[in-house]
Amino acid sequence: MINHTYTSSCKQMLGNLSDFIDGDLQAELCSEIEEHLKNCKNCRIVVDTLKKTVELYERCASDETNLPDDIRERLFKKLALNEWMDHQDPS
């Protein structure tokens, strides 16, 4: 853990951070943030971990998952697909 001296320029940077990591920020503001990051290790960590946070959730969202058995059973019954209830692909 690192001691963080939280300055007004850090707070200003945070205001634009989401657009910055999405690449949606105007070039001038981007340069200002990049300049700030060169001299503020704490904000660099915040930027990096914010990007990582978004990346982790994107990864989780793209996972293939099976439906829990009880919910699958009720869904098949509701859709009148009982005949194919036992045909689940094990993959």
Binding site: A61, D63, E64, T65, N66, L67, I71, R72, L75, F76, L79, L81, E83, W84, H87, Q88, D89
Partner: peptide, 14 residues
């Protein structure tokens, strides 16, 4: 249709 449900429903439920 049953195959479609099995292939897609886990992710959609999540």
């Amino acid at each position: 249709f049953a195959m479609l449900v099995d292939e897609t429903s886990g992710k959609i439920y999540n």
